[in-house]
Amino acid sequence: MTVEDTLTDPLFDELRVADLRAGYGVKWGRVSGDVLPAWVADMDFPVPPVVSDAIGHAVRNGALGYPQWPDGNPLRAAFAERMRTRYGWEISAGDVREHTDLIQGLQLVLHLATAPGDAVAVQTPNYPPFLASITTMGRRRIDSPWLRTSGGWVPDLAGLAGAVAEHGCRVLLLVNPHNPTGRVLTRDELAEIAAIARRHDLLVISDEIHAELTHAPHEHVPFASLDADTAARTVTLTAATKAFNLAGLRCSVAHFGPRRLLALRDAQPPDLYGTVSTLGVIGTLAAWRDGADWQARLARVLDRNRRRVARALAAWAGAAADPAPEAGYLYWFRAEHLGVSGADPVAEVLARARVLLDGGSPFGADGHRYLRLNMATSAALVEEILARLAALR
């Protein structure tokens, strides 16, 4: 155990369970009694002060009327600047559009670029709302399972290429950093995926919402930044919501590489898919412009927590323990590490340990064998959750 593993931060560790239970969010609102929630991807931490200050100032100064943005939504230029400074990815603000959330962006792109019956490739396990979106929109979901090796999670790129060719896929939904495994794809792996997309003329929808929570020494590489061909076939979806705990602001952005698709999107009735709120824009801009210190402190806390969960899993499963995520705050591990082997591991853990996790069959592939633990909470609550899980064994 290192010094970093024992450090605490009052901004993130002085949480009161009574306050969390009395809040407005679904994470704690879905449970009752003494159940501890560690399921949905919301953090328990307070909103960054720079965000609450900016929103409060805007409300006090009458910002709830119709916004005046003569040069277009300021999110567009701010996002382009953030990609340039963080990743060296040079994009035009004119190719950026905003949506109320990332899932809406995904569904809009699928609606415009595909038709019912078209095949969409996706690497599984994967985020359940993404999988459900493909299915409920009448598209054919083509799963390409990840491989669990002795060294950790590995994308089966040969399997992905084969699935795309066999089923005539039109689209690849890429999730990087990956949810739920937390794996960060390397530049070489992304280059192989780009080659597959080029050979089969795929539109790539790249969800990169967890990118800013990548843990050192891993590095996030925007998929569209690889080369001109990749950029021209990729729509990148992201938001400040995961990295700054702002899901309720309902604000996301999309960068459109394909010119035809952007023109098709802009030809739609302007309010058909809704518009982002003024407060969502103000909060996002505040986070991006002034939230670096808060985010740096958050990164240290999340790294500490993932190390703590990794030590617990190693104690329970030894060398068979599933690896810590390389990004984010969601830990994907086999239910058997807890002695749980039923068809519904989430329900079994809830009933026996009074902890609500996520996982199971909605994630696809072998999801029924896995659980997903949200670690974005105080050190004390992490310890209590781990103690309850340990008692299952």
Score class of each variant (00 low, 15 high):
Phe256Asp: 02
Leu20Asn: 08
Ala121His: 03
Glu384Ser: 11
Leu36Lys: 07
Gly328Lys: 01
Ala380Phe: 10
Thr2Ala: 13
Arg334Ala: 14
Trp89Thr: 04
Pro67Thr: 02
Ala335Leu: 04
Arg198Ser: 07
Pro74Asp: 04
Glu348His: 08
Asp5Phe: 12
Met375Gln: 07
Pro269Ser: 10
Asn305Ala: 15
Ala165Trp: 10
Leu389Gly: 00
Gly283Tyr: 02
Arg307Asn: 12
Val204Trp: 05
Ala320Arg: 15
Tyr273Cys: 08
Arg308Ile: 12
Ala41Phe: 02
Ala132Ser: 15
Thr136Met: 10
Tyr370Cys: 13
Arg97Trp: 00
Ala240Ile: 00
Asp227Tyr: 06
Leu172Tyr: 09
Glu192Asn: 04
Leu264Pro: 00
Asp19Asn: 15
Ile209Met: 08
Pro270Met: 04
Ala286Val: 06
Leu185His: 02
Asp322Leu: 07
Val31Thr: 15
His337Lys: 04
Leu11Thr: 14
Tyr370Glu: 03
Gln295Phe: 08
Ser341His: 13
Arg306Tyr: 13
Leu389Lys: 05
Pro128His: 09
Phe244Arg: 00
Leu389Trp: 04
Asp34Trp: 11
Leu160Ala: 12
Asp227Gly: 12
Ala296Gly: 08
Ala351Arg: 11
Gly168Glu: 09
Phe363Cys: 02
Ala319Leu: 10
Asp229Cys: 10
Ile193Phe: 01
Trp89Ile: 06
Gly151Thr: 14
Leu262Pro: 08
Val50Ser: 00
Asp9Tyr: 05
Gly360Trp: 00
Arg306Glu: 12
Thr8Val: 15
Ala324Trp: 04
Asn73Thr: 11
Gly274Leu: 01
Asp143Met: 09
Pro116His: 06
Pro129Val: 09
Trp153Thr: 03
Gly117Arg: 04
Leu174Ser: 03
Ala343Asn: 15
Thr238Gly: 12
Phe79Arg: 06
Val171Cys: 08
Pro74Lys: 04
Ala77Asp: 15
Ala320Leu: 14
Gly359Ala: 06
Tyr329Phe: 15
Trp89Ser: 03
Ile55Lys: 00
Ala254Cys: 10
Tyr87Glu: 09
Leu330Tyr: 12
Ile193Asn: 01
Gly318Ala: 13
Ala63Phe: 13
Leu202Val: 07
Thr234Lys: 06
Ala391His: 11
His368Arg: 15
Leu272Gly: 08
Leu371Phe: 11
Ala165Ile: 10
Asp118Arg: 11
Arg352Pro: 11
Gly364Asn: 05
Arg183Met: 04
Val355Thr: 02
Ser150Gly: 13
Gly248Trp: 06
Glu219Trp: 08
His255Asp: 01
Ala391Leu: 10
Asp229Gln: 13
Asp101Asn: 10
Met137Cys: 07
Ala41Cys: 08
Val17Trp: 07
Ala310Ser: 13
Leu185Arg: 01
Ser225Lys: 12
Thr230Glu: 02
Pro325Arg: 04
Val281Leu: 00
Pro258Tyr: 06
Val40Arg: 12
Met1Phe: 08
Gly364Glu: 01
Glu384Gln: 15
Gly152Gln: 06
Leu108Met: 09
Gln104Asp: 09
Val51His: 02
Leu108Pro: 02
Gly280Asp: 02
Thr186Cys: 11
Leu202Lys: 01
Thr2Asn: 15
Leu356Met: 13
Arg30Lys: 14
His368Val: 12
Val120Ala: 03
Ser361Cys: 09
Pro345Ser: 06
Pro325Val: 02
Thr284Glu: 10
Thr284Trp: 03
Phe244Ile: 03
Ala324Met: 09
Val17Gln: 12
Arg304Leu: 07
Glu336Lys: 11
Ala211Leu: 14
Arg334Gly: 15
Glu383Arg: 14
Gly151Phe: 14
Asp271Glu: 12
